[in-house]
Amino acid sequence: MNSLHLKKKYRIALPKGALIEGSKIALAKAGIEFEMPDKKLILQTTDPNVEILLVRQHDVPIYVENGAADLGIVGSDMLQEKLPDVLILADLAFGQCDLVVAAPKDSEIKTVADIADYSRIATKFPHLTRQFFRGIGSPVEIIELYGSIEIAPITGLSEAIVDLVATGKTLRENGLIQLEKISSHSARLIANRVSWQINHEWTVEILNKLQENLF
């Protein structure tokens, strides 16, 4: 490697929100620790060669696919929804949750079969939702939202929702019940394809440390 290359810092994109604590613990195993002061988006770490990018979960695969970050941690739900061209290196086994279909407890809908044709389904995952309902041959109208999916059925925006559920608490609090599980998800370590080639030794070292307790 020439000198220009060595000066470059490795970048890891992490998602703000639900997966950040698990990501911190996982990276600490690889000797990468960092503080998260308010509003700071690029963080230095205890490893002088590594910096952290704090971005929205949606954007993690985008940073990695385009090479702005070498590695990223993101939920497998996001990868299946967005289908980015990245390498999925490892299941980090935290951030476990299910993608489920849910409807108001007091509605007529007790199973997915009860969902009438052309019902509206609110979700953050239009691709996976479409795939699921096409798979069971049920024509539905998909309404894409960016957050607070649970209030869609309460306000009459939709008849049912498709969303991630970790404990089921949010569903219960909003008077919803799970009808069916679509798929299970957890955090994945992803890599840019070119970075995996060029920085292979470094990446495998991180990977090994992260996986020590998994295999």
């Binding site: 090479g67 394809r193 970075s195």
Partner: peptide, 9 residues
């Protein structure tokens, strides 16, 4: 052909 600056060949 890859270059470190670009994430794509």
């Amino acid at each position: 052909v890859v270059i470190p600056a670009s994430g794509k060949p």
